[in-house]
Design a protein around this nucleic acid. Structure first.
Length: 457
RNA sequence: GUGAGUGUAGCUCAAUUGGUAGAGCGCCGGACUGUGGCUCCGGAGGUCGCGGGUUCAAUCCCCGUCACUCACCCCA
């Protein structure tokens, strides 16, 4: 056997249903907030992340799948989405095409890290970005949307954490204040923290080493060192968030690991996730577009870890039960059975059938395992009478139905009659008959509701 | 990159103080010549992660290695 690459994983039937549910919710929420989907390549120039994500970050320094391609180009599998989104925004002048540039993307990211719970080498992110809007009302809306997303996924033990890390004007002052406050206690910090103090003092707040905690607790807070514009931006953000009834906690210890963040940063943390408890994280990055060679435009967004969202989501329904399972007995019946399957499928039903010459018992056992609502038995008797035995699995009841009436009988069940609108493009052959087939005693489970696209703008 | 724990049937796990392995679930079949789910009976399925060492003999002991899990780190 050739096993999967470390840190990658297959999403199998049984688990994929959760993913599909998560992706559906994600798309719905994004659409409701006015975001348009874009898809960017998983491979980019290495330079994009060196400049975008930041040369000093661990992501760029040691986690990228970077290599030289056959043309001698330095390329890399993307470790995160934001720089690609910025690139696409600039490269296609999206601000000329969209009224407001609110875009989202869903796809795999790659980081060479040691796998653990909620962390993989190939993982998937939802990425949400807005370009060209500097106003604090957007900061609040983005955070509120992130909270709404988590809520819509049914994750109820999540916590919104907020902070402001200032801007290019005021952050250097804060860094100096940090170092000053540290003073000679810097020597008592752990090795990592001493390294952070030299490279990126803000990250000292991230430390979990117990011996560092008293020192870190005594450090000044970023929000006390904001310049006037940053302060009022933060105040406006928190005020609107309160007005929007978003529960959040301001934590001066929330510092994000990427270099480009300015002003608002936030994170949503969830339970049952182990150490990697950040469901999503993001913030404002007003200098990034320009830094990547674009116009001077504000930016804000967040990325959510799909694996983590799926992990934190409550259990949902399993796969949809098939409408029918066809049992064919004998070679003569088998061809007819496949024609019946085709006709029912054309009418929009989910229909399964067994293959090969298996006993009736074996076929029924398989039918039972698929939770099919009906079993359609087609043997020599039925063939001779041009009919089909329709067995309702839940009750065990059977009726002999004329071959030409089977489609109508199964499509006319009361549950699907409740939803007359859907099945776009499928009903070519189906409902040319009047409603209400032959008296149908069966009471099948209701069909899953089809989603009606929200066309409101 | 560091640390700890774990690798035995498709899945969840036993056992052997060193004598080459079992259960439950699942799968296939039978009891029921064309009727599932329950029950009973039978069957298939294992390089005991991989490599080396010690030994008459290793799934068990030793060394190495790989993988998985969790944590550090980092981050979604």
């Amino acid at each position: 056997m050739i096993p999967a690459i470390r840190g990658t994983h297959d999403i199998l039937p049984g688990e994929i249903e959760r993913w599909q549910r998560a992706e559906q919710v994600v798309r719905d929420v994004c659409e409701r907030y006015g975001y348009r989907e874009i898809r960017t390549p998983v491979i980019e120039r290495e330079e994009l992340f060196a400049k975008g994500t930041g040369e000093t970050t661990d992501i760029v320094q040691k986690e990228m799948y970077a290599f030289e391609d056959k043309g001698g180009e330095r390329v890399t599998l993307r470790p995160e989405a934001t720089p690609s989104m910025v690139r696409a925004f600039v490269e296609h002048a999206l601000e000329q095409r969209l009224p407001t540039v609110k875009i989202f993307s869903l796809g795999p990211m790659f980081r060479y890290e040691r796998p653990q719970k909620g962390r993989y080498r190939q993982f998937h992110q939802l990425d949400v970005e807005v370009f060209g809007v500097a106003d604090a009302t957007l900061d609040a809306e983005v955070v509120e949307m992130a909270a709404a997303l988590v809520d819509a996924l049914g994750i109820d033990d999540a916590e919104v954490v907020l902070n402001s890390v200032g801007c290019a004007e005021c952050r250097p002052g804060f860094s100096r204040a940090l170092l000053a406050a540290l003073g000679d206690r810097a020597a008592d910090l752990c090795g990592d923290c001493r390294r952070r103090a030299a490279v990126n003092p803000l990250r000292i707040f991230d430390c979990k080493v117990p011996s560092c905690q008293p020192i870190v607790d005594a450090l000044p807070h970023a929000t006390d060192y904001l310049c006037d514009p940053c302060r009022s931006h933060f105040e406006a953000t928190t005020a609107l968030l309160k007005a929007l009834d978003v529960d959040f906690r301001v934590s001066h210890r929330l510092v994000r690991g990427l270099d480009y963040y300015t002003r608002t940063t936030f994170e949503i943390r969830g339970g049952r996730l182990g150490a990697q408890n950040a469901l999503l994280g993001g913030g404002r990055y007003d200098g990034l577009v320009r830094q990547l060679g674009g116009p001077d435009r504000a930016g804000i967004g967040f990325a959510a870890g799909m694996e983590r969202l799926v992990l934190a989501m409550p259990e949902g329904p399993g796969p949809r039960a098939p409408d029918a399972f066809i049992v064919a007995l004998g070679d003569a019946a088998r061809q007819s059975a496949h024609r019946l399957a085709r006709d029912l499928r054309r009418a929009g039903l989910t229909v399964l059938i067994d293959y090969g010459d298996r006993s009736m018992k074996a076929q029924l056992r398989r039918a039972n395992r698929t939770s099919a609502r009906h079993v359609l038995i087609l043997g020599e008797d039925e063939l001779a009478r041009a009919s089909v035995t329709v067995k309702h699995m839940a009750s065990g009841g059977e009726t002999l139905v004329g071959r030409q009436d089977v489609v109508r009988m199964l499509t006319a069940d009361p549950a699907s009659a409740e939803q007359p609108a859907p099945k776009r493009g499928l009903s070519v052959l189906a409902d040319d008959e009047p409603e209400g087939g032959p008296g149908d005693v069966e009471q099948p489970a209701p069909k899953r509701r089809l989603r009606v696209p929200d066309t409101a703008v």
